[in-house]
Design a protein around this nucleic acid. Structure first.
Lengths: 115, 115
DNA sequence: AATTGCTATGAGCATAGACGCATAAAGGGT
DNA sequence: ACCCTTTATGCGTCTATGCTCATAGCAATT
């Protein structure tokens, strides 16, 4: 039940960093780009445009944000840039959340069945 | 290096659910409320107002969102509502992200030292 | 049922950020 | 040096939402 965490409460700075990080993943476009890269391996921008249907400028901006956060890395291939996932954290998080969401849905389903 | 995830790519619906979930944590106010509850154990709204300095209506709305998402649960104590964390997922996520952020900072530090 | 104390919610304002268009910047080939 | 291709960025628009004020709803007490 009601755990209390023994450590100190998170500082405002940490709180801000955490929320900023989650904000990156809160945008479907960015999350989609990340998942696409995770699933397909490294891709260049043209392929990402093709896969997602977003405009070039939009993709460039979103990838820029992901790169500044260290979630993605790029590499030149001639004039093109190839992007790749740079941190295994994101898939981990998504799996955790996905599992939790599923569990909650199953619980709700059981509640409905018992009614 | 470049893993590719064997499973199928996430459906648009899953992508939306995941991003909506992360959006909840992307707001400093909500994350602060969650951390406060996690750290102090169950608290009533007056205590949360005291602890965070937010207005009553703001807190009510944010707690409502967290509750609809199943992250928080409330319980009547007379006329007051006491809120408590309802899912251990959030502290897990925060710890993962925090660890990853720290690792990245340490790497950057080493890069600076070797320069 | 009226009053009191606590919580939820409608209305409105302000701001952040997504998204596209146009254009600049950068890199490579002739 | 010029041109072509690819990526980054300034600017404008529009939507979403944080946040507040006022007020409505609701539970307990008398």
């Amino acid at each position: 039940m009601g755990h209390t965490t023994p450590g100190s409460p998170p500082t405002p700075e940490l709180l801000d960093e955490l929320s900023q990080f989650f904000r990156l993943l809160s945008e479907p476009a960015r999350l989609q780009l990340l998942c696409q890269l995770e699933h397909q391996g490294p891709m260049d921008v043209a392929a990402l445009i093709e896969a997602t249907g977003f405009s070039q400028s939009h993709i460039s901006r979103q990838l820029g944000q992901l790169q500044r956060a260290g979630l993605v890395r790029n590499q030149r291939e001639g004039v093109r840039l190839t992007y790749a996932v740079a941190d295994p954290l994101v898939p981990q998080l998504c799996n955790l959340v996905q599992t939790s969401l599923r569990q909650r849905l199953e619980q709700q389903l059981q509640l409905l069945q018992s009614a």
